[in-house]
């Protein structure tokens, strides 16, 4: 066969919108602190043990709770822990949570996203069973309730700028389609909701790309 390189990798351009959910969905972005520096996930897992094995990741909508939960789960798996991940969509999801707790060996890490969707009674039951089963539990919630905070997710313009810098942008950003002022403006218009800000930047990128 005759193989030709259409472009060498060194000069190959990024194809696509760097703000698409493919690159920005929860878990795809490295968890960063409010200054835009990487969080030390191993230390957070150690802190979970000190907190008694059960704690909450707190923060408002779009502030990085799910991203942090995903990456904590991955870090625990790489340490050799058994990890169960559950996303709660309604109080009925208590049943699969209890099944997971019943089927998990002690010291498993149960990661539950959107803890508040369980409702007060459901959350209390899940917490009780986690204690009885001696499973570790990390949840995401807007407020902690009975669980101590493991981390409080806060956002800043510096955080959004750091996330954008880490996207697979190639020369798309350096070339001027999106600049620092756009990122700062998206943060302000989204009132600190990083997910919403990234959607705004997605639209802006599309608009400008088509205008070229």
């Amino acid at each position: 066969m005759s193989l030709q390189a259409s472009e060498s990798a060194a000069v190959e351009r990024f194809v696509g919108n760097p703000f698409s959910t493919r690159h920005t969905a929860p878990g795809r972005v490295e968890p960063l602190d409010r200054e835009g520096e990487p969080l030390e996930l191993g230390k957070l897992l150690d802190r979970l043990v000190r907190e008694g094995g059960r704690a909450a990741i707190l923060g408002r909508h779009g502030h990085g709770k799910t991203t942090l939960l995903h990456r904590l789960a991955e870090t625990a798996e790489r340490r050799g822990d058994r990890v169960v991940r559950i996303r709660v969509r309604s109080p009925w999801d208590l049943i699969p949570i209890l099944n997971s707790l019943a089927g998990s060996p002690s010291d498993s890490l149960i990661c539950i996203d959107s803890w508040e969707q369980l409702g007060g009674p459901g959350a209390a039951i899940a917490l009780l069973v986690a204690r009885l089963r001696r499973c570790r539990l990390v949840v995401t919630a807007h407020s902690g309730g009975d669980l101590p905070p493991l981390a409080v997710c806060e956002t800043t313009p510096a955080l959004l700028a750091a996330i954008v810098r880490r996207l697979p942008a190639g020369d798309a950003l350096d070339g001027g389609l999106i600049d620092d002022a756009d990122v700062a403006s998206a943060f302000e218009q989204s009132s600190g909701d990083i997910r919403d800000a990234l959607f705004r930047l997605y639209d802006l990128f599309e608009e400008r790309r088509r205008g070229r």
Binding site: M1, S2, L3, Q4, A5, S6, S8, A9, A10
Partner: peptide, 9 residues
């Protein structure tokens, strides 16, 4: 760094 060469330019 991964370079991929396609048979169609």
């Amino acid at each position: 760094r991964v370079m991929v060469h396609f048979d169609r330019p």
